[in-house]
């Protein structure tokens, strides 16, 4: 058994003068839940289409499940495209079973599987309904199910969470966890960091067609310094002199998004090094007699990492 289900080596794709994907390389190990992150227009969908051999890369090579083209192993892959749509006139179970049979599943097995999935993920009552009668969110769930009904080794979901309400987002997260537990590799793209944070073992961050980060969530968090948040009155100079403190920023009330502070209280964000111990900082506060009203030691969120890494580029793309 090989280690990586998917390897991209220096893959590029251009549309005329516009470079959609620029020299991207990465590998995805078997059994991982892999987040594919990036702002809108970063080249996520183009990359996914190239992985599936719907588009041909201009240069570079792709190895998927040991093959050079996804078409050779398409029965072992499940794919949910970014834009969602189903045959409106078909029944829910029939559409799941149809896509499963297209992936080589036996007709009767596929039908049983469709009902099983619908029951597990809360759509049992809609099995005989026509797709056109479903709400958008339900339709999307049906589409996710039809993409994974044939138990593919590799599942690629393009923006699976968009358009789902929080409850159904959780159902989908559960589905992804279930698949990972069954040994399936799941790749999903999103621009909502919370999902990646909760689900991913590893993540790939792209912007403007370039790879910006590839690694575990812990690696990503390590990119930007950890922070300690202090709220106190008076001077915090004794703390700034400590070893491992990179700097401090005082934030106004609006910036901190915190509850209104009492008069004279200031909000500080300390950036600390990896090895710095928050315990020692807290201890120094007591020793220096700083009157703390808040002491917070937080891991940087992926959101912060994302903004940090993509920065102004992302904004530019957003409003392009």
């Amino acid at each position: 058994m090989q280690d990586n289900v998917l390897e991209l080596t220096r893959v590029s794709k251009r549309y005329g003068a516009f470079t959609a994907v620029d020299d991207i390389s990465f590998a995805i190990p078997r059994g991982a839940i892999y987040g594919f992150l990036g702002p809108n227009g970063a080249g996520k969908t183009t990359t996914i289409r190239m992985i599936l051999d719907i588009l041909k890369p201009d240069s570079g090579s792709i190895n998927i499940l040991g093959e050079t083209s996804a078409l050779n192993v398409r029965q072992r892959i499940g794919y949910l495209p970014e834009e969602k749509g189903l045959y409106k006139k078909m029944k829910v179970w029939a559409i799941i079973s149809y896509f499963a049979t297209l992936k080589g599943m036996d007709k009767r097995v596929a039908k049983a599987r469709a009902f099983e999935l619908l029951e597990t993920y809360g759509l049992k009552d809609y099995a005989e309904a026509k797709v056109e009668s479903l709400s958008k969110g339900m339709g999307q769930k049906v589409q996710v199910l039809s993409a994974v009904a044939h138990r593919p080794e590799l599942v690629i979901l393009d923006e699976p969470f968009s358009g789902l309400d929080p409850v159904n987002q959780e159902v989908l997260e559960q589905l992804i966890h279930d698949m990972a537990a069954a040994g399936q590799t799941v790749i999903f793209s999103t621009h909502i960091m919370q999902h990646a944070e909760r689900l991913c073992d590893r993540m790939l961050l792209v912007a403007k067609g370039r790879k910006i980060f590839d690694g575990t969530i812990a690696d990503a968090r390590a990119i930007i310094p950890r922070r300690v948040i202090l709220e106190c009155q008076g001077d915090i100079t004794p703390i700034l002199q400590m070893d491992g403190i990179l700097g401090a920023v005082e934030k106004s009330m609006e910036q901190s998004h915190a509850e209104p502070l009492s008069i004279g209280t200031r909000h500080w964000e300390l950036q600390i090094q990896e090895h710095a111990n928050p315990q020692l900082i807290l201890q120094r506060c007591f020793e220096s007699g700083i009157p703390l009203t808040r002491f917070d030691y937080t891991q940087p969120s992926l959101h912060d990492v994302f903004v940090h890494l993509v920065g102004s580029d992302a904004k530019e793309h957003h409003f392009r």
Binding site: L86, K88, L102, Q143
Partner: peptide, 16 residues
């Protein structure tokens, strides 16, 4: 219909 619904992409991931 298949094109505007983007069903075509799912189909093309399954068949040539």
């Amino acid at each position: 219909e298949e094109k505007s619904n983007r069903i075509i992409e799912v189909l093309l991931a399954s068949v040539t």
